[in-house]
Amino acid sequence: MTHNSSSEVVIRRLYQITNKYSDGFEAQVIELLNMGLERLNLDIGILSRIKGDTYTVIQCVTPDEVEMAPGDQFEYKNTYCEITCREKSVIAVEHFAINDHYATHPAYSAFGLESYIGVPIFIEGELYGTLNFSSVKPYPRKFHEFDLDVIQLMASWIEVEIIRRKQEAKLTALNAKLKKQALSDPLTGIANRRGMFKHLKKDINRLSRHSSSGYLMILDIDFFKNINDKHGHQVGDKILISIAKKLKQSIRDYDFIARFGGEEFLLWLPDTKEGQEQSVYQRIMTNIQSIDLLDSTITASIGACYFELMHHDNMAFAHKVDELIAKADQALYQAKRNGRNRIEYYHPDFL
């Protein structure tokens, strides 16, 4: 095979491996290591990570008699990669024992490897690690310039792929953060109306798969406008934040709360029979009244609507939620009419 045709085969193989994104990064690296070992006729292929004084094996391909696995660690100064990283370029040594420059390196006495070719990997200007191939046997010929080019190409792809994966991870995290922000109230950190509707839709679908019951409640802070007028909006905001925290402390693990708007909060108590909501209500009222507001006590009024969902209830989600909210709102109005600082339950006779 001519040099040109050999080069074409190598480049084609590199292209095939580096475009197998569906295989995953680890599988691609192992294929690159195997390709390098075949191309160079060496025994050990390693992708390493270097942090401080520690050399960590990220991926490796070795003969059965060599005990090495991903996660193995060595002292960085006792590896040939220390030479590679110090030189900041491809290093190729055919026979360490007769190389006056490298034979005294501690890696030679530590590992006894006779031939080695390695290249440093830099990510955004910072040393990441190395890609290297080696053997306990001297290399039978001088490494060709193309050998150095091939390992450099492999390392370049690894550099680009690691950067791409880091950027992809950042983008995924950013998207998750933006999605959470879109569903959360920026002041209290609990769900906003959009997050509320998303949760209720999912939970109503779950509950309608089997007969179930529960409560939807709307809580309104009593005389909140007076608090804002007297103490200022900063204090008002602190009260809203405290209310959200107290509500989270009061509900059960499977309950749900959201900021419904202004000083109103929605509480969703699924899988709850009539009467079982009382313990939650008592905790809510006690916890809210424990909020310190200098010259007065914080209280709240609650309107509650009990619901039953029959098996495969076909009522449209939006209609079901609107109906429950409207009923809870009527009950809340009744609680305010009856003196506030109390809970009222929806009744069809409410005007």
Results as ranks from 00 to 15, higher is better:
322 D>P: 10
44 I>G: 01
31 E>D: 15
104 T>E: 08
73 Q>G: 10
264 E>F: 06
130 T>I: 04
291 I>C: 04
128 Y>C: 06
94 E>Y: 02
15 Y>F: 08
312 H>E: 15
265 F>V: 10
114 E>R: 00
70 P>E: 11
84 T>S: 04
128 Y>N: 04
315 M>D: 12
264 E>P: 11
55 Y>M: 13
262 G>R: 02
108 Y>W: 00
190 I>E: 07
221 I>F: 09
152 Q>S: 08
13 R>L: 01
190 I>Y: 05
7 S>Y: 08
245 K>R: 00
126 E>A: 06
134 S>T: 10
121 I>T: 03
302 I>L: 08
183 L>W: 03
208 S>R: 01
90 V>G: 06
113 L>V: 13
237 D>S: 03
45 G>Q: 05
3 H>D: 14
181 Q>D: 15
62 T>Q: 05
250 S>Q: 05
300 A>Q: 00
309 L>R: 03
313 D>L: 10
18 T>S: 11
263 E>V: 06
131 L>F: 06
75 E>S: 13
179 K>I: 05
89 S>Q: 14
216 L>A: 11
204 I>Y: 11
22 S>Q: 14
82 E>V: 13
342 R>A: 02
294 L>I: 11
276 Q>E: 13
223 F>I: 05
311 H>K: 03
285 M>E: 06
158 I>C: 02
70 P>C: 12
246 K>C: 15
317 F>Y: 07
215 Y>S: 13
83 I>R: 01
248 K>P: 13
189 G>H: 06
14 L>E: 04
121 I>A: 05
312 H>T: 12
24 G>Q: 02
14 L>R: 01
